[in-house]
Design a protein around this nucleic acid. Structure first.
Lengths: 337, 337
DNA sequence: AACCATTATGTAATCGTTTACATTTTCTTT
DNA sequence: AAAGAAAATGTAAACGATTACATAATGGTT
């Protein structure tokens, strides 16, 4: 059904090689021939078959983006950055929603093995560092975003979870808080682990005990945050601040507090992470930790594509980006100590 | 570098045909041979090259999903549905963020022409109905979501914008509102056009005049809604209710109202569209129109894949799904008339 | 044991490009 | 105008799987 290169060649009265040369702007074609071929291409509406091209060139110009959950705004902002750079560099994006399941993540990695894609970008993966290194060592091109991973050939961009956790906690300490709830996301997620670690270190630096009863976890979504607070209150735990591992959960905290008549920030201070677009629009505006999500996507995609095209690399492959705590109304109330 | 079928064949001491048969569970292979081949496959870690397979089978098992903006939650919920069904049916998804530009949308459609994908799903496209029909008539497989489009071979799933606009307006009328602002998204978007049309019809049914000064537009995002309200107030327009074409803009309305000391819902009622997960978590909970986004994705993807595999079709290809107005606190205040 | 029917396996064409190499044409130079 | 260099074009072999068809092996029947 489709027009093939032989059809165009026949119509223009040349060989397929010449048509190919014209289409790919290769040198060594007479202006006259070129013109004739162009016309045939035009008239017949020829579109070179991408699969055949891929097979011959051993490239698909496609990148798999494996993400824990496409419904989380944090990830889509990163994806937007990746997509913009990919579009610019003529790459396509295969989107893989792992749905927070390691099995699905692994399954999607087969796209690398069977050469459906040239490379894979893992966003906040569930796979262990060693597993990821193993894939790279087998010769597959992978890049990681949102997790620190040292390896000679894995581009990686991340932010220091422990560091910003310390910043968040110091801010809460400065506001007079001592009983601070930490609301983790998926316990297996590295982000959760590291943010909790920062929470613990902060307590230690302040000579405060680590109290497991102040730790709860949700699923990185609104309902998870909401339920977590209800569980805490149900257990009779008292607290004056909540540090949630992301904004979605923090929003759930808002609702739960409202329902229990706890005013934010007077009775409960709330700090989230990720700086969702909505967090500055809600009331009270939510304090949160901002990461340059879009830029991270842009940077990583560019680095990865450069790597694939052998344009220099070795120099630098691991990038730490800064996060900044945005103090808004939800944590701006200073209490007496 | 990769292991090819010939390598496996050599190792197992059989022909490539036999290896292929074993791998694809074709009948007619001795248990003994099968076992030997399986072992070779196992030992060598053979993964059949997808590109070669695609070229031979003239299929890529890939669907392009063209979306106006990957950062809008409404779209990602639909995408999630599509992805879940695609995963189930062994299809891959190429994600295309058209960034609300028709040019980019058109560009991405080339993926159909060059057979990078077997089909394309257009979510709330900017292309005209005729343009979409034209693509289908050229023999390419397309499906549309979020827009009504009648065509013999285009699966389509949509909701009746005009109808739910009427419902929203009647609800606002019932609460005593007469000066109702309509906040449109991109003016070119069909959703905007139809929702506005419903707004107009509702006024007419109520014998109220259509007042252009009550119409503003944003870009379907928070800032757009925020700016729009500020423009209205700057112009000295008075109103008691805002019907925003989506929840993101409605959230911007929340912020603008707050800053101007207008309380929701007592002084201004707000209704959005899409039922973002956040809308029930903010305060006051936002009235909004719910669509079965996830299900729409699931249904359309299934229909499309069936179509591609020639499993019956003709019967039905256009689906209208119901939207329901969720009345929450943001529009639950009844004013005197 | 010879024959035929059945089943298992192998051979080679095919999918639609790109490109190394061979061949032909054009252009210089004398 | 002939010869040689340079440029344009063509031929055919890849890329790595699937599969129609040909062939070989097995099994059953007499």
């Amino acid at each position: 059904m489709d027009i093939k290169i032989v059809d165009v060649a026949a119509r223009a009265g040349v060989s397929t090689a010449t048509v190919s040369r014209v289409f790919n702007h290769s040198a060594g074609v007479t202006a006259k021939t070129k013109q004739r071929v162009m016309q045939a291409i035009e008239e017949m509406g020829y579109h070179p078959n991408a699969t055949a091209k891929n097979l011959r060139s051993q490239k698909t110009l496609t990148i798999a983006v494996i993400v824990p959950d496409i419904n989380v705004a944090y990830f889509t902002e990163i994806i937007k950055g990746i997509e913009n750079m990919a579009y610019l560099k003529n790459y396509k994006l295969l989107i893989c929603d792992a749905e927070n399941q390691k099995s699905k993540e692994l399954d999607y990695l087969n796209l690398l093995m069977n050469r459906t894609v040239d490379a894979a970008i893992l966003i906040a993966p569930l796979l262990s560092d060693d597993e990821i290194r193993g894939i790279s060592d087998q010769g597959y091109i992978v890049a990681v975003i949102g997790r620190y991973l040292e390896h000679k050939s894995i581009p990686c961009i991340y932010t220091d979870n422990i560091k910003f956790s310390l910043t968040v906690m110091r801010h809460l300490f400065a506001c007079g808080h001592r009983d601070i709830v930490f609301l983790s996301g998926y316990a297996e997620s590295m982000d959760s682990v590291e943010r909790l670690e920062g929470y613990k270190q902060a307590l230690q630096q302040q000579n405060l005990p680590y109290r497991p009863e102040l730790i709860e976890s949700g699923d990185f979504n609104e309902l998870g945050g909401y339920d977590a607070i209800n569980r805490l209150l149900g257990r009779g735990v008292t607290f004056s601040a909540v540090y949630a591992a992301n904004d979605e959960m923090a929003l759930g905290v808002y609702k739960a507090c409202r329902e229990h008549g706890l005013s934010i920030p007077e009775q409960v201070a709330v700090v989230g992470v990720d700086n969702n677009r909505i967090s500055e629009y809600i009331s009270p505006a939510m304090s949160t930790v901002n990461q340059p999500k879009y830029t991270m996507g842009i940077m990583l995609a560019e680095k990865l594509i450069d790597l694939m095209n052998d344009n220099e690399f070795a120099d630098k492959r691991t990038f730490k980006v800064n996060s900044e705590l945005l103090i808004r109304a939800s944590s701006s109330f200073k209490r007496e100590v």
